[in-house]
Design a protein around this nucleic acid. Structure first.
Lengths: 233, 233, 233, 233
DNA sequence: CATGAATGAGGTTTCATTCAT
DNA sequence: GATGAATGAAACCTCATTCAT
């Protein structure tokens, strides 16, 4: 019995996994409301009935898809290795990891956009919400502390703000690639264009993080009063 | 005759406008597939039939909504006044305009996200696509030229890249406010948090645009080889 | 006033005529239920409103179309000239006229089929039903009498039956050309196939009409009892 | 288990069959465009939803109806028994079968007319088109060969042409009974009128098929040059 | 554990027609 | 006489989901 149950269970898991994968692709491609159970069943080589059997409802399925998407990101983040002795290199690696992840996981961007349309309804109902918090925040935190200790990074940088800024600079272009490309008349997410853009973004981030060589205040004085004031907020 | 005919015509225009407005709200709130004709008709105090009378189809309606959203942005952009004699102030005004526009027009963000889900299908079919190109690009171009002439801005900045970076820094937080807030456990788009974030973003942009006080190359040397290299790409 | 009214009236007539023509094409192509007012209006370079203005309803329009179709047939029939001195030639001309008319007026066939689907509802309500009776029946009648007088045609032929038979042999192939062609795998209404078929049909009709050279009864005896019996019914 | 499962399956088949039957009646009565899903569902004691469950679309349903109609004709044709030793009797039986089938299956005529309006669109998309070819053609072929061997039938008769002629003579009257009756002022498809007409039609067919007793050419000479010429085509 | 059959509710769209000058 | 604006009703079809083993 145990011997027959094992493969069975594994079949069940496999079916569940196939459905989850197919659902991820479908939700990413068509959004939540536009996703079709029929198409998911087909892609998963299963039946609509099985979707309800395993996930209970379309909302339940989408929640599972989101949880899986976040889990995959978290796993990828865990594999990132930043050199603690070379803060600049670590910063670059960090940025490149984030941007490359977005580039290589367009479904993730789409799923996030969809979930934001629903005001994070599914995410908030996730029992695994706590596990979703990114381990990368600590990584960034350590990196900033290391750079500050070495005197090359500013020591007053909010790690979350920096993370959001880095994410922003990678996300926007990819998320809006179709409208941007249509309006501008060229593919803004073509590999070459992207590399050039990332170079500028990296410079932007580096310039922001860098400890001003000749007294921080001095550099700020070069900025107009208005912006300097903003800095003090 | 003309006096009685006029109201008729205005009624038609008014009905059309009410539908368009209601549709904008509905599509922004529920996406394209999730939007319901019935709700649009109710909000517009009209009928579903009228939607098809004026716009032909759900796709046609969405296209009209997009065109209107872009037209509104363009109109707002036209009203922006940047001081040509004070590049730093102009830069700040520019950034703040963009960011405030996103903050005050969350439907615009949502519509863009939705349209990108559809790979700009509606936008590309718009006969008015040409009119949609932002007049603000020239504005930015002139501003950069002015700052470079005064010796305060770098003179090798790609205006589109800069625009995209500015937009990115404002867009991401607002577009993903619900998932970010759910995961981080606090409202990332609360007014105060936003002001703080914008201050940092402004500093980032300013740092990127600023002509290095002591010879451009010198400052770069402070960066590690990897990033400096990137700068030269 | 009269001078301006005249062109007006002619415009009105022209509009009416254009609508009628467009409607004929539309009803023939799509049947009654499948016909679309919008398409008729477009083809007629007029508006749907005008259709109702001139014809009152879809049924009224179809009735007018039918009346026109019958009127056109009647006019064509009136122009047929049969040689009263050569019954065989007259018979052939008659058959060829009917068959050619069907071939050249496929809309007429389609309109008839459609009207039969509606059990001649529109036709029966036509005030002009009386005018529709074919003048050709008398023509056929005279032709048969002439041939009988000359001793070449049988003298017991029912003119209506003969007319129906002739019509049948021309109608069926054309009316069912698409299903027949699909099933048989070749175009049964191709010009060449049609000519061959008509030749046989003509022979069939001629054989039926012809007075048996050697005593009518004698020829029948060549038929088996069953069919001879049938003849006596 | 099997015993309880069986009725389930049969229910599905029964539901499908009821829908198909109801649809046949509806399409025959109202044509394709005029047919109403609601009426079909009611007649079938099912729901509109089930129509789409089993047939996918209105077009799919119509295609299934057509396939069934052809299948029924084919089945009926298979049951026809023609006496191989009595060609004249076989010919009569054949004609009577065809004509009686039309008379007793007016829906078949209507469905054919409808499908021709759509240019055999549904038929051509049928995967079962190949199975639809009539087995009766071979029957006719054998019959003609038998009659020719016996020296009573001509030996140069195209079987398809003959079949089409026979079908024509039965089809026209029934297909156009309403318009014909309206115009002629009497029911052309009344039983008695029909019998009389069929008698003439049979004579026509027989005359066409019959081997001329005294040399084929001799009889033809009685025809005018024009028609005789046609015969030689 | 797994599934074929079924479905109520509601989606988008179209129809023939009328209103109001 | 002529027409742009409007519309109630209903068409076809789809959706997420449940029934009943």
């Amino acid at each position: 019995m145990a011997t027959t149950a094992a493969p069975r269970r594994r079949d069940a898991d496999a079916t569940r996994a196939r459905i989850l994968k197919a659902a991820g692709a479908e939700f990413a491609r068509h959004g939540f409301a536009g996703a079709r159970g029929e198409r998911i069943a087909q892609r998963a080589r299963s039946s609509e009935r099985m979707i309800y059997y395993y996930f209970g409802s379309k909302d339940g399925l989408f929640r599972a898809v989101l949880e899986q998407a976040y889990a995959q990101l978290r796993d990828a983040e865990r594999s990132v290795q930043l050199d603690p002795d070379d803060p600049w290199n670590a910063l670059e690696q960090f940025c490149r990891f984030v941007w490359r992840y977005y580039l290589e996981h367009p479904e993730f961007i789409s799923l996030l956009n969809t979930e934001n349309l629903y005001r994070a309804r599914h995410l908030r109902r996730s029992a695994r919400l706590g596990e979703l918090v990114s381990p990368i925040a600590q990584m960034l935190s350590r990196m900033l502390a290391g750079g500050a200790a070495k005197g090359v990074f500013r020591d007053d940088i909010d790690e979350t703000e920096l993370y959001v800024a880095i994410a922003s600079l990678g996300y926007f272009c990819l998320s809006n690639r179709h409208t941007l490309s249509a309006v501008l008349g060229r593919d803004v997410a073509a590999r070459e264009a992207l590399e050039r853009y990332w170079a500028g973004a990296l410079r932007m981030i580096a310039g922001y993080v860098r400890r001003e060589p000749h007294a921080g205040a001095g550099a700020l004085e070069a900025l107009p009063a208005a912006i300097a004031e903003v800095d003090r907020l």
